[in-house]
Design a protein around this nucleic acid. Sequence first.
DNA 1: TATTGCTCCGAGATATGT
DNA 2: ACATATCTCGGAGCAATA
Length: 288
Amino acid sequence: MPKAFLVKRHPAARLGSQDWGELSDRLRGDAYVPGRCLVHYPGWVVGDSTYFRAWARFTALTFSAYPPSAQPRELHPSPRPEASMSISPAASGAFPEDRKSGWDGPSQRSSPRPRPNLLPPDAATKYPRAKGKGPQGPGDFPCPVCSKAFPLQRMLTRHLKCHSLVKKHVCRYCGKGFNDTFDLKRHTRTHTGIRPYRCHVCAKAFTQRCSLESHLRKIHGVQQNYAYRERRAKLFVCEECGFTCAAGDEYYTHVQRLHPGNALLRKYLRKQGTAPLRFLLYSGGYYA
DNA sequence: TATTGCTCCGAGATATGT
DNA sequence: ACATATCTCGGAGCAATA
């Protein structure tokens, strides 16, 4: 059974069956910041409204997804959250009624794992910031939950979503939620059976490129000559029928012919009307 | 012009199957 | 034990917006 069917969800959150179109503007998206959830840490966000907004948005999203029993009961008194601070009321033992119901908090998979520090030596010049706009160092946007630091505000903002229970992108087949459209697209392949990455030696097909590369390396002893994190040649995948090709124009010709109602096609045609050359460069040569 | 959002992607971890 | 499936999440480029 695919792992996607085994993911435990909080019964009260019911994010999996959430239809975002049915929610009011107040409850959908990540712009809603209810006043009751604004938590202020003195001396930490003063003079950095952007940073504060990111944290406020995070607390709003996180706690609005918990059941009433888990809503914050008082403002955190400490000047700054500790590294070990848990956002899971049930997991931290703060709300025994949730523990009793059998929910053990967010999946362990969502906890941060140690990763190599990939910041380049010239990170300070690579990530310039305007004066007075917040922290100045390359790792000076620390996550208030796990203390992991980021060189850019937008990286922290995006990282905060992984601590939130709210998932904007929901699988139409199983209801599982994702933070990223692409993650949802990849996940959906587990339901549609589309496997775009085929082994040229034994013709076995895979849903993800890294699975194919792992297979080639371990089974056929084929070594890929790619640098760490080097982008591979882009593969255009039709998620409706499994058609794959390496060229953008071929892909859109296929979609226009066989799936004329495709949303990506509409977007492509819209862009083509305004800036055709730029978009063609983007879609066809971006990874070249 | 700077910032933010969206999207694509690779790397690595973990679950599951054989 | 090993191969595969599939998940999470950070890096990065472009577009949209303030």
